[in-house]
């Protein structure tokens, strides 16, 4: 099962490599990884998605918790949560396809953020599924480049991951 694990960790050199290293060292998969400082500059927030059964996820969270740089973590998929992945996608857009791409982008509530004579660059945010669907909807379009931020996530309601 796919899980989203959010980690609050010390904003120290080497902290990220410890998290990433743990996954390769113990043979766990990372599907996506997103990391940036928080409003507190001493803390980084890392969100990663991984796949595994309950036992494996339990081991992953325990091993992550053991890392000295990890202050707190939560498995967001255990409760109601919001997840967002950001995609920038550059496509060939010429002739009749220009309108078609624009329409599809509107349907997905994306924005065309850069326009060239024969290309569009589209920005789209949402769940990973939504981004996948958009890419699938572009089947007839020549996709030139795709970049995704990886999932960032947060719990719904009062629940917060903080010190």
């Amino acid at each position: 099962m796919r899980r989203i694990i959010a980690i609050l960790m010390e904003n120290e050199p080497g902290a990220l490599s410890r998290v990433v290293g743990l996954f390769s060292q113990r043979g766990y998969n990372i599907e996506t990884l997103n990391v940036a400082p928080t409003d507190d500059p001493t803390l980084s927030r890392l969100t990663l998605t991984t796949i595994g059964d309950d036992l494996r996820i339990e081991q992953i969270t325990k091993q992550l918790n053991k890392l000295v740089d990890v202050v707190k973590l939560v498995d967001l998929t255990e409760g109601a949560h919001i997840e967002r992945d950001l995609m920038l996608i550059k496509v060939r857009a010429q002739g009749a396809l220009r309108d078609e791409v624009k329409r599809t982008t509107d349907i997905f509530r994306g924005q065309i953020v850069d326009v060239g004579p024969s290309v569009y660059t589209i920005q789209l945010a949402g769940t990973s599924d939504k981004l996948d669907s958009f890419v699938a909807a572009m089947a007839d379009v020549d996709i030139l480049e795709v970049v995704r931020s990886g999932v960032a996530g947060i719990s719904r309601g009062e629940k917060v991951l903080s010190l």
């Binding site: 050199p13 080497g14 490599s17 410890r18 290293g21 060292q25 000295v68 740089d69």
Partner: peptide
């Protein structure tokens, strides 16, 4: 050293 020893230490500092 921090990198080489990472998987075999409880923690490391530079």
């Amino acid at each position: 050293m921090a990198g080489i020893s990472r998987p075999i230490v409880k923690h490391s500092f530079m």
